[in-house]
């Protein structure tokens, strides 16, 4: 049980790392240049084009904390490497955490006489995506670095509440029998959004809205792809493991 969770989580984490560097990292780094002031939205900075390094050039002023003295000029490489290696490591960690929760769900379903295979796993993966990424994103959209937001603890509480309510709601919808479960499920699914996520009164982001939109869309797209693979893989491993037992 633990082994299938870890294996599926590591596989999904590796895929997440790959997709992160293909689709997400560029807009994240560019946002940091806006955050540090290396480029500015209203001074004709290059759009999120092919090379974020080029975008940094036109804004004549040197950023204070970006690529600053401690790394030296030519030695940005090792710290980038370290940063990206940590991104890979934590992707694996996060997806292993998701996988453990997912496989625990499999175990619960099995204990109540359900069957779990790759197909069921795929559906569970999509539900996990909805619970852990899509539903929280409706209230707290994926943030670029440099985004101002409400109190962190309040957002974290809302985030966990939304994950729990959405997960429970989807489980009731899928496995509950009778209209009472449907009603309860809909209440659970809607409640976090009726309560509403904590937000500031105004907006203070420094990055262009196009960049934030691209980032949010790609984060959600990558999440969907990786969760689908995670669920399918976990379900496939699970059914193989239990068939042997």
């Amino acid at each position: 049980m633990l082994a299938s969770a870890v294996f599926a989580g590591v596989a999904a984490g590796l895929l997440a790392t790959l997709l992160h560097f293909v689709f997400v990292q560029k807009s994240l780094l560019l946002a940091e240049e806006y955050e540090s002031g290396a480029v500015s939205h209203f001074q004709g900075a290059a759009p999120a084009g092919h090379d974020h390094g080029a975008a940094a050039e036109p804004a004549g002023t040197e950023a204070h904390d970006h690529a600053a003295h401690d790394h030296g000029d030519a030695e940005a490489e090792p710290s980038d490497l370290q940063r990206n290696a940590l991104t890979g490591l934590f992707s694996i960690l996060v997806y292993t955490g998701y996988a453990m929760v997912l496989v625990a769900g499999f175990g619960l379903a099995i204990a109540y006489g359900r069957r779990i295979g790759a197909r069921e796993g795929l559906l569970w993966g999509l539900a996990g995506y909805a619970a852990f990424q899509l539903a929280p994103a409706l209230g707290l959209a994926p943030e670029l670095p440099g985004t101002a937001a409400a109190d962190l603890a309040a957002r974290q509480v809302w985030w966990w509440g939304t994950v729990l309510a959405t997960g429970a709601g989807l489980a009731l919808l899928a496995y509950g029998r009778g209209p009472i479960y449907v009603v309860l499920a809909l209440v659970l699914l809607a409640a976090p959004h009726l309560i509403g996520a904590p937000h500031l009164d105004g907006f203070a982001g420094v990055a262009p809205p196009e960049l934030a939109a691209t980032f949010a869309a790609r984060v959600l797209g990558v999440g969907l792809a990786v969760w689908a693979v995670l669920g399918w893989t976990a379900g496939a491993i699970w059914s193989k493991e239990t068939a042997q037992a």
């Binding site: 997400v24 292993t96 998701y98 962190l152 999440g223």
Partner: peptide, 30 residues
């Protein structure tokens, strides 16, 4: 799993936060 997600996604120690920074942004954790 929840403990893993808490450490990787929510714990606020500076070292953890910096190490996990890009992933937290890219998975929609606050």
């Amino acid at each position: 799993g929840v403990a893993t997600l808490f450490v990787a996604g929510h714990a606020q120690s500076a070292a953890l936060h910096d190490a996990a920074h890009d992933v937290r942004h890219a998975t929609g954790f606050p």
